[in-house]
Design a protein around this nucleic acid. Structure first.
Lengths: 155, 155
DNA sequence: TTGGATGCAAACCATTTGCAGATCT
DNA sequence: AGATCTGCAAATGGTTTGCATCCAA
């Protein structure tokens, strides 16, 4: 995960202006393990910046995503963001359905996957959903019935 | 893939009424290999049913998805639907970035994936994006530059 | 006959845009 | 100073809802 300073650094090096809001945004993402929706961000930021408007949040999320400091993922219940993984190399994620924290896994199944050679592979997605240690022990989880967000019948 | 009649059968057996529109809808999905957006469906259906309204399309798509005859997938550019795979068993898909046709693959990497045992796996997603034989030969494809829909940096 | 299906209009929500004024560099 | 940011308001696009009417069973 990128640190607050790495995020700010990246933004400033691209000619973006470092406003107070953007500093706070950088800190928020650097310190959050899970995914945040635009609304999450708006609510968090709103506590500090009273006149805050939603469009500024959207603008900044987009800018940061285009810049590569944020990763955008589309869940069933909408778009969410988190700080980019800084580990340079390719990896996948376990994603907690409860708290949405992610755990990296190094294993990539692509080398083992036989694809018809008429098909030209461009990219792939491999994500595992479930419940992390903390959420299991907190007892909030009813795995069998939970047809939760972020899921999709393992296609 | 389900056939027109299988779709109609399933709907009727659930007490849904088989209207003309729903027959056409069943046929459309049975005969379409790729994914269709609500707009695609609306436009197609609109040719036959002049007074067609968008909300009916949405309602039917939702009903059919809840019934299990359609599969819903969320792409970067929105929700899309296709007829459910009838092959009872678990499998994954290659998805063409150009025409969105899907090819099933039997290989599932989950058995080979080591997950921390504190993590309780619920489900997974494994999808491969690229260009199918037809789209490659039709020369419409510029793979290197295409930061296409339906994609997501293989995390 | 009658409850589900449809079309219409309007509501709703998330996201984007134009613009004027404020802020960073 | 000058370009970028921000807030506001309004537009947009996708999706849902309420209601009266219509139609399949």
């Amino acid at each position: 995960m990128l640190s607050t300073n790495q995020i700010i650094e990246a933004m400033s090096s691209q000619g973006l202006r470092i406003t107070d809001q953007r500093k706070t945004l950088a800190r928020l993402f650097a310190e959050t393990e899970g995914y945040l929706s635009p609304k999450d961000v708006y609510e968090y930021m709103g506590r500090t910046y009273s006149g805050l408007s939603f469009d500024t949040v959207y603008r900044n999320l987009r800018v940061m995503q285009e810049l590569g400091v944020l990763e955008q993922v589309i869940f069933e219940d909408g778009v969410k963001f988190k700080a980019s993984c800084s580990s340079g190399h390719h990896h996948h994620h376990l994603i907690c359905l409860q708290c949405q924290k992610t755990l990296p896994i190094e294993f990539c199944p692509m080398q083992l996957t036989d694809t018809p050679d008429q098909f030209q592979v461009v990219e792939h997605k491999f994500e595992i959903f479930g419940y992390c240690k903390d959420c299991q022990s907190s007892g909030k989880v009813s795995p069998k019935t939970d047809q939760n967000q972020a899921s999709s019948k393992g296609q």
